[in-house]
Amino acid sequence: MNKSTKQIGLFTLLTLCALPVCAASQNASKAAEHSALAAGHSATAGAQVVSAAVATPLVVVGEVGKAAGKTGEKMMEFALDDEPLEISDDTIIADPAPRQHMQTVNDQGAI
């Protein structure tokens, strides 16, 4: 590899490292996250780390059938005010993706 090739390569490396991958959003591996949290690192005394099974949007039905929009379609009216909402003290986390979960279980020899 001569000097000019090295220079081109270095330039390319530097320019690519600065590429505007501005919206990149890869899913993080959850295995280490679960390990770290399971080790007892919870944020608040008394709070626990718990795994979620499913989340359901909290819909508070109030005045039903209020017309909305130009087409006059009907939609539910929820109780949307500025009242503070209740938040659990527990640290809720998602389980790892199935493949990672299976790998973790296999590594631990549980299956």
Binding site: S25, N27, V50, L58, L85, I87
Partner: peptide
């Protein structure tokens, strides 16, 4: 993020935000 009732694996529920994402596949 949507304010949600979050069912836990032990059958209990908590209130908090669930975050709905689009992620790249690993």
């Amino acid at each position: 993020a949507i304010y949600s009732s979050i069912a836990l694996e032990d059958g209990t529920t908590r209130k908090g935000y669930a975050v709905h994402n689009l992620y790249q596949k690993a």
